[in-house]
Design a protein around this nucleic acid. Structure first.
Lengths: 147, 147
DNA sequence: TATTGTTATACTCTATAACTATA
DNA sequence: TATAGTTATAGAGTATAACAATA
């Protein structure tokens, strides 16, 4: 008995497929997926380490090294908060902004290719349903808009 | 301009949501996601290290440690191939089989919950479309059937 | 000589616990 | 005392390069 019609199986396979695209495009930008995710979060907002860790769903101590490495690449920088001398605000650099925009563009293109084989009507339906699923659950910020 | 209707964005968010469920259920079984994936692949077939590495998309040298750790947990075992003395065949142990079946059951349940809020008609449509997407692309084996 | 698998080494990501500095 | 962030330490996952054993 095949399970091609099993929702769970479809979700898992699809998610691994998308993750592989995400990883591939990250690498093409010289980033790990986690670094790309970090930079995507910072597209919209400059955040302190604590907020950033919470947004990414990792410990502050884990974030320290992650930011260190991306900072060493020159894509983000820390600045001391004006309101609170304890707080480090992390922000994209000029180069970092370009890198993440390129990343987002390429990822979007590759993901669109993934569904390009389907009729538009199907794509719209799929997008609608997928959108409903994610809006009804807590989803980590991973692909923020530059708005 | 919101991008709720953007396919790429929906795909990424959905994939991270599914990955978080996969990770959560793995942990509940005392496994890392990679260990769970390894065991899922072995549900259907006993494989040599080279084939297993290829299936998982990692280097043989990376697989050595991964199998070591799962073997230490008692969930898989290596046996020398009868045809080729160089080859180690990896197989699930009795306990390992129970663990992976439990993992699969819980993951399936949690993933079904994810779409439980949607009318059946929508779920079926979504499953159909997602199934088409993955069948038209190379998807790593991550949720094999026990058949 | 080619293939199978392991070892050595290095790096990224992650967590927990302990710490410093500031509020 | 509580919060922001870092450091120390440990372990998992990964890759590359070099190696041993077998085909």
């Amino acid at each position: 008995m095949s399970e091609k019609n099993d929702v769970a199986s479809a979700l898992v396979k699809l998610s691994f497929l998308v993750q592989s695209v995400y990883a591939e495009v990250s690498e093409a930008s010289g980033l790990t997926p986690q670094q790309a995710q970090l930079m995507c979060v910072l597209c919209n907002q400059n955040l302190g380490m604590a907020q950033l860790a919470q947004t990414l769903g990792i410990e502050k101590s884990s974030l320290t090294g992650l930011v260190d490495r991306v900072e060493k690449l020159g894509f983000v920088s820390r600045k001391v908060s004006e309101n609170d001398a304890r707080s480090s605000i992390v922000q994209l650099t000029k180069i970092g902004t370009n890198v993440v925009l390129k990343f987002r563009g390429e990822a979007t293109a590759k993901l669109n290719e993934l569904v390009a084989c389907m009729p538009k009507r199907y794509r719209d339906t799929f997008t609608d349903i997928a959108g409903r699923i994610v809006t009804e659950h807590e989803v980590p910020a991973v692909f923020n808009q530059v708005s």
